Amino acid sequence: MSNADVNTRTLDHIVHLSPAGKLEETAQLFRGFGFTVLKGGVHIDGLTENNLVTFQDGTYVELIAFTHPVSYYPPGSPERLARESHPWASKHPGWIDYAFLGNGLLSPPSSRISTIINGRGESEGSGAHYTDEEPGGRTRPDGVALKWLITAPDIKKHPRRGVLPFFAEIKLNEASFLRKVSEDPEAIKHANGALGVSYLSVLVHESSRKLQEGYITSVSGSKAVDSTEYETTWALDTPKKDPGAAEPKYHVAVPSRPGDDDHLERFGEGILVVGFKQIGKADPDLKEVTTPYARIAWTSG
């Protein structure tokens, strides 16, 4: 398999940020929407903690929050500096980031995600550029440590996190907690009938649209499957294939409905709404709900 053929368009998870120390409140909101929410754990740096909403296609939503506000840490302390420099430190609560599945199986430097995408960005002239892989991890409630590799957009060229995906790959020598969870019928069973992610829509300024389209073409290694006046669409894969299910879609969108311009002004470019595939709706009239910070939409699965 050549680097050009490596799959870099598999959706792994989407990140929802809560205010510091308010993770459980958001978990209760998602439970109220009919999702099954699992306990996650504290990340290895101690700055953030998470809960999880997992789906049968292997994708998941990560509900995350900083464990403490910035003021908790003494001024000038290493912990304070780490908290202030965290990639999500300046993010408003809501949908803040999303990850595609990395390629931890491909260990040679020439086959790493960063090398592959940077090569595409150069040859295609899009300018897409990612930094070298870095380790990350967290400790589960049962004390087991999970470790992974993260490949992120280069902040020198793409300064705003959450507009382009980062890549995540659990290391092979660690138990794959999330993949095991996706086989647990109770963990992936949701009262609202959710099967997985139907789409995610990234809102950008009209002036940024062509640039973002070029970026995501290089990042995903695929061409758009549709384009309209207000959005361009790519097809994504999922970690676990379901021949009977529609593939999730990725939209690069520009303002088209009331409130979109205000959203851009307040939050900047990034995820506007996440749609979920749903069957057996308890409320057939349910089309969209919101947390205090983010939009959730429903489509027929």
Rank of each mutant, 00 (worst) to 15 (best):
V53G: 00
T59R: 10
V274C: 14
G270C: 06
K287N: 09
V274F: 04
R31P: 03
F100N: 12
D226M: 11
P69Q: 04
F35S: 06
S220F: 15
G121S: 12
G40A: 00
R140T: 14
A82C: 07
I150F: 06
P243C: 06
S222W: 01
E269Y: 05
N192T: 15
R160A: 12
G41N: 08
S107L: 09
T151F: 01
T54C: 07
D262H: 13
L211S: 10
I150H: 02
W95P: 11
G136C: 08
E84P: 03
E25V: 15
G270I: 04
P159R: 10
G102A: 11
D184W: 01
T8A: 06
W234H: 11
D283N: 15
S123C: 08
A20R: 02
A99I: 12
L149V: 13
E206C: 09
T48L: 06
K147T: 09
V274K: 05
G119P: 13
T10C: 13
P239T: 00
N173E: 15
V252D: 01
K240N: 02
E174H: 09
S218H: 08
I216L: 12
E84A: 09
T26W: 10
H16K: 05
P75N: 05
W234A: 00
K287T: 04
H43E: 12
P153D: 04
L200S: 08
I113Y: 00
T48R: 01
I188D: 01
N118M: 04
K22V: 05
G46A: 09
L164F: 05
Y199Q: 07
L38R: 03
G119T: 15
K241L: 10
G270E: 07
T26R: 12
H13E: 02
Q56P: 00
P93M: 07
H251W: 11
S222M: 08
V61Y: 02
Y130V: 11
F33V: 01
L200I: 13
D12S: 05
V37L: 01
I216P: 01
Y215R: 03
T139F: 10
G275A: 03
G214C: 12
R80I: 04
T131F: 06
E183K: 13
